[in-house]
Design a protein around this nucleic acid. Structure first.
Lengths: 352, 352
DNA sequence: TATCTTTACGGGCACGTGCCCGTAACTTTC
DNA sequence: GAAAGTTACGGGCACGTGCCCGTAAAGATA
């Protein structure tokens, strides 16, 4: 019941190399002050023993605290989606606080590019050791990435990806595939002659994410030679009145819409419209396990919700930086979340 | 960037109580050798400071290693299902090995009660600190539980539950609800006049799990006044020949079976039968993300797989004991896993 | 009263690593 | 050739907790 003699440790390495533990330590942290000869000798022994530092002791002895910044949208009255990643971040922090890791959270307004840029500026001003960020705006993120490269600050993207910016990792959905799944789910209750409506409700019109989802969605129908017509609509005001007005018009023009696919969590607004206009026969699919959506799932207005484990994304985002900065182990570059299917029957056990 | 002065610690408590750290330590671990008076004084200060021991330092200083036993079915040639929980156990172990936690894994044969009892005996023989167990056989588990109560060894059930045995926690599916979800999924491709076949392939006939799933499955049809007839069959030999023979007979008796629901991971055997007998029009649903099943998902023979995150179950099972034994924090008694729906379209990102 | 036992507590080392400080030996500068 | 600077390394304390061992003081026994 006693710990085995972990004969490997700095002390053992030092003994074998005929140096002090301080010198071994210098090599381990590649600090200066060691001759090439001894350095090589020590490194060889380290490899031979497959030395793994004791993180407990390391973190206990170190006075440095590691600060991580999290840059995510604030929880608006429109959607409480970002509650979940935030809670994942908190969970991760609680787990690694013992190791001297601290997180600072910065919130921006999803409808305001400026606030995004502002929060980035704030984070970069107080040089943190690592950053988890939801890259909502492409150009600003690009600039952010180059700044991080300069400072060699690792950063992780969550929720959506912008490739080729050398993020330490991406943790989030494969949007194309996610749209593909949405299309499949839509077909379960679809009549061959019914039209399909794609609804994109967002103030940001040029959003890269939505187009990828839509592409995947359409790809399914191409792959399966489905005869159904597809209609699409962009709604750039997110309030109910505007959405209702636009939808009324679309449904007026297209009498035979049998299914609707909403590319984000605002599906509850559409659900509300369908309910109010007595069109609940229309199949409805959208995104994210947020309160309002679950309500309409419960009452059969929404057929399916697609989710990508937002809580887990927050958790993993932080843990990826922890892996890199504390454990110093490698991190998977691309980390696609499962595409979860949530229905009236299984939602009560869904762990958002 | 420096750690704040964590003024709370045994040392601070000792200072305030005018005793040595050793005495505080005695109180913390309620060992003997402290007068009631000082004990109370120290306990008051501990409460006042809301003292949280530093686990890093604690585990570093302690020479005791904590041993956890894992009792799960072996990976048979029939199914590699238990690979997933095992991998979760390994992941948890890697994470907490640093804290001086060790796991020992014990495998039993799912088709052999004796081997189950034997492994339990082995575990109890070498008093471990905590146990994760898949309670495959009810009576043996009941005996096991009383033994554990006597020794005050905490144990966690994974994959299936036996209530009222005072397990520290149950981590696994809500089988009734899971069957309910299965029924819902089955209806997507179901004609009103088609019969539904429930298939239970298992050597253990008296299995509590399957009956719960089936109950949930039937409940759905009761709740939704579906007109379809339900036929059921028990097959107690698990090889393909036997299954094929039984199914041939059932399909001969019931010409209009439109959908089949298999209550466990042996759905691939049924899939194989349906394919060989050119009955792929029959809707097929079953359990678990195992290799063979995914193959038939890919080729559209299986419509849906229902999964309960077996990897996570293994991970959480170990971590629950860790929480209890090392962190000394409370553990959720009932931990229902999500009922995941896996299809051809989303399986590639599923994290088993 | 002298000896033994019990109770109640303190001293201090250990765990494995981080890192400050000191110092020989060697090199450069004027 | 002495002073100053540089390089390469060792000593040793600190982190917060666990726990062994030692020991005064109080009580028990003869």
């Amino acid at each position: 019941m006693e710990k085995e003699n972990t004969a490997s440790g700095v002390k053992e390495i030092a003994r074998r190399a005929n140096v002090s533990t301080a010198t071994v330590d210098r090599v381990l942290h590649n600090r200066t002050g060691v001759s090439e000869k001894t350095k090589k000798r020590i490194n060889d022994i380290i490899k031979e023993l497959d030395y793994q530092p004791n993180i407990l002791a390391s973190r206990l002895a170190s006075k440095k605290i590691i600060t991580l910044a999290i840059i995510i949208p604030s929880v608006s009255e429109e959607t409480d989606f970002w509650l979940a990643p935030l809670s994942g971040v908190r969970r991760a922090e609680a787990e690694i606080r013992q190791y001297g890791v601290q997180t600072l959270t910065f919130f921006f307004d999803l409808n305001d590019k400026e606030s995004f840029a502002e929060q980035i500026k704030q984070v970069l001003a107080q040089d943190v050791h690592g950053i988890v960020i939801a890259p909502a705006f492409v150009e600003e993120t690009r600039e952010f990435a180059t700044q991080c490269m300069k400072r060699k600050t690792p950063f992780v993207f969550i929720d959506s990806n912008i490739p080729d910016l050398h993020s330490l990792s991406y943790i989030g959905p494969h949007l194309y595939k996610s749209g593909y799944v949405g299309a499949k789910l839509l077909t379960y209750r679809l009549q061959p002659d019914a039209k399909i409506l794609i609804i994109n409700i967002s103030k940001e019109t040029d959003n890269y994410n939505y187009s990828e989802i839509e592409e995947g969605f359409r790809a399914y129908f191409n792959d399966h030679v489905q005869p159904n017509d597809i209609v699409r609509i962009d709604i750039s005001e997110t309030d109910y009145q505007s959405v209702s007005r636009h939808l009324t018009y679309v449904f007026h023009l297209n009498k035979d819409i049998g299914a609707a696919f909403v590319t984000n969590s605002r599906v509850h607004t559409v659900a509300s419209f369908l309910k109010n206009s007595h069109r609940t026969h229309v199949s409805l699919i959208g995104y994210d396990f947020v309160k309002e959506n679950v309500g309409y799932l419960e009452t059969n207005v929404i057929d399916f919700l697609i989710c990508h484990r937002p809580e887990d994304q927050g958790y993993r985002g932080v843990m990826a930086l922890y892996q890199k900065l504390v454990i110093n182990s490698s991190v998977t570059r691309l980390n696609y979340m499962p595409i979860d299917i949530v229905t009236k029957e299984n939602y009560e056990f869904y762990q958002n």
